[in-house]
Design a protein around this nucleic acid. Structure first.
Lengths: 233, 233
DNA sequence: CGCGCATTAATGTCTAGACATAACACTGAG
DNA sequence: CTCAGTGTTATGTCTAGACATTAATGCGCG
């Protein structure tokens, strides 16, 4: 009944004392030598435990000065995960489906320069149990992904196709609230101007724009939710 | 000019090959024995490099089966950081200020049970260069934070006060789009029903509810934005 | 007093082993 | 053919050392 390796137990002991508030930020933790004596093990074992805590940002280590409990970051620290639509729908136990509403190939306009010369423009409606869930407008760069011109987006939604075919190296998300325009409202079955959550997503691969997507969720039906604790990455 | 420790160099070499796409997800990385021979070092050194990569989620290690490049997570993987309002405003080079619009102490209602018996209810308006930026409603549990009854929220906004006085162990965020109700619209200087971004935040300390906050941003004026690359945590 | 230098206490890296453990692969019995 | 046992392989943990690096500290000199 060993189960837990020693270095994990040591790290856990320390973490518990930090989480409980017994050791507040700035508190200087016992040295490796002291912990080595306390646990009766080799220094490397203690060292590994402490390095792990340092890597997770719970403590700060400095030579000669010792190891102190880290001050929690003041900024950010709070996140929301943005799910893949299909996983999200299926995760709620609903049947996922989608309909391709429009598809044209056209030259990129001026403000879409990053996507190169030619793009595919798509309109897709994502449904959960046959009810409209998300209205998506998407541009895919044919410079970055020429295969997209031949891809069949009626069987696979464009997001899933891209995930499989074009890994990205950089992305930008933008979340905002908008009133539904006429086309969106019609697609989602809402009144014009109804509040909706818009998620814009742009991705690049090595500096070349790959895709731009605007996904619009009915405000009443969908929330982005995240639950987390500060110590867990 | 050594600078970089060997284990870091090894991990870096591997990471580069993963990032470049040379080693795709599922690819089986050379074994520790092979890398040990290649770099002419002890196995522990290679092991540490690989453990670090595994801890960061770039590779998956299994006994006997070896180490393979991890498949990027389908869910999450995409995040938005939620900033502290004051930092956000000041980060844009604007002057931050706030006004306490209302403050009462009352018993918690039924659906606020998690907050305990008595709560402080606050309405605060956050301003950027004296223009309305966020309308915030907040409840603070007096069970979890009795000092809140005496705190002066006209000098320090409740979010900042809590950050300093009550560290949380768990939090939940919820982002949604709503139409501005009459009170909110008045505070922000919008028309009733104008689309707004609502950020709800609940925090707990050891299972005891600490606070609930609803922050409403004018849809036209504010987006949550995040830019990132997949390998960086 | 203040400045520079040597001391030394702490972490950082690395080695060459050892044994433990998980899981794939094979083999022989039924 | 199937299944249980067994061997093998790769990772997981741990040790007892060694030397390197950093920076706080104290000390002596001017």
């Amino acid at each position: 009944m060993d189960q837990e390796p020693l270095h994990r137990r040591i790290a856990g002991d320390i973490e518990r004392r930090i989480a409980s508030g017994e050791w507040r930020p700035g508190f200087r933790i016992p040295t490796e030598a002291e912990l080595t004596a306390e646990y009766g093990c080799a220094r490397m074992t203690v060292s590994r435990a402490m390095s792990d805590l340092a890597a997770r940002g719970l403590v700060v280590r400095r030579r000669r000065a010792g190891t102190v409990v880290a001050h929690p970051p003041v900024h950010s620290s709070a996140l929301v995960a943005i799910p893949d639509i299909q996983s999200e729908v299926e995760g709620r136990g609903l049947a996922y489906s989608h309909r391709l509403l429009g598809r044209i190939v056209r030259p990129a306009s001026e403000d879409e320069e990053g996507l190169g010369g030619k793009v595919v423009e798509l309109q897709t409606l994502h449904l959960a149990d046959d009810l409209p869930f998300v209205f998506e407008r998407r541009l895919i760069s044919l410079t970055a992904a020429p295969e997209a011109e031949a891809a069949d987006f009626t069987t696979q939604p464009p997001g899933g196709w891209l995930l499989a075919h074009m890994p990205w190296t950089e992305a930008e998300h933008r979340i905002s609230a908008v009133g539904a325009d006429h086309e969106t409202a019609a697609g989602l079955g809402l009144a014009d101007g109804a509040p909706c959550l818009r998620l814009e997503r742009r991705t690049w691969r090595d500096g070349q724009g790959v895709t731009w997507a605007s996904q619009i969720f009915p405000g009443a039906a969908y929330d982005l939710v995240a639950r987390f604790s500060p110590t867990k990455g």
